Amino acid sequence: MNRKIYIALGIIVVLVAVVAIGNVILSGLSGMGNPTGGRGPNYPYFITTEPTTIKKIVVPKGTKLTYEEQFLKEGEQDEIMNENKLTMVELPEGKTIDWGGIPVFMIIKFFNPEMQGYSVYADFSQLKKDKKTKFSELWQSCNNDLGLLIKNTDDWTFNTKNIRDISDCGVNYQRYFRNNKEQQQFLDELYSELKKVNFK
């Protein structure tokens, strides 16, 4: 009788070990290609089928709208979702919208919930000479995205009354480094020039 118990226990231990090893192998395979080694969330998104107004901006057909992780919502969705959950607007390749006279192809909400704002990505190769301003020149010199702190999160337009400050311009200029006078002066000048832009 004791022998049968030992055999049964042995079989159970072997089965548990096989399942555990299988899970390790599968999780390793699922993480392949991901820089963090794990599989990231499959955020819900919607591809616009016609020109659409979102966060008070008009985006063209084919724009990808990505949303926060939501229960039972993954990958591409059949219909547009709640604007309050929007995290990213990505225009079709080669397409831009005018944002303060500057061609912009992507806007991403700040990941940090304590920071109310978003980052704007410009395609300066599409910027026409007659649209160049001191603001566009300063932004282009950063050679990267522009981070903006805003009052109303429902408005992602170039609304100088809604933009309360510039949090960063690329990696070289950050509001976070308050003791760095050069960075702060640059961001102050950039914000000052932004407010001078007369664009509607």
Rank of each mutant, 00 (worst) to 15 (best):
A20G: 10
L187S: 01
T53M: 01
N112W: 09
W156H: 08
Q70F: 08
K196D: 07
D145K: 13
L29F: 13
I5A: 12
F199Y: 15
N180D: 14
K129L: 06
G22M: 11
N159V: 04
Y45C: 01
W139Q: 07
E137S: 09
I21N: 02
D98W: 03
E93F: 11
Y121H: 13
W156I: 06
L91I: 08
T49C: 00
G40D: 12
N159W: 12
L15A: 14
I11A: 10
A17Y: 10
A8T: 11
Q185S: 00
I163L: 08
F111V: 13
G94F: 07
S141V: 03
A17I: 14
D155T: 05
F177E: 04
K4T: 11
Y118I: 02
E137R: 09
L190W: 02
M106E: 14
M1I: 11
V24Q: 13
N152D: 15
K73Q: 14
N143D: 10
E90L: 14
F105A: 01
G170E: 02
L15H: 07
E93G: 06
Q183E: 08
I107H: 10
G62A: 09
K4N: 10
I57T: 06
Y6P: 03
P103K: 11
I21G: 03
S141Q: 08
V89K: 03
G40S: 13
F158P: 01
G94A: 05
K181I: 00
L190K: 00
R3W: 14
F135C: 11
S119D: 15
I107D: 06
F110K: 05
D165G: 04
P35W: 13
K131C: 00
M88G: 03
K129Y: 05
W156S: 08
T157W: 08
G62W: 15
F111L: 12
I163E: 04
V120E: 09
N82P: 01
L26Y: 13
P92C: 10
N162K: 08
P60Y: 04
E182Q: 01
V16Y: 15
T52S: 06
Y43I: 06
E90Y: 06
F158Y: 12
K61P: 04
K161L: 04
D168V: 00
G40P: 15
E193N: 12
K195M: 08
N2I: 13
L190C: 00
K131V: 00
G147L: 12
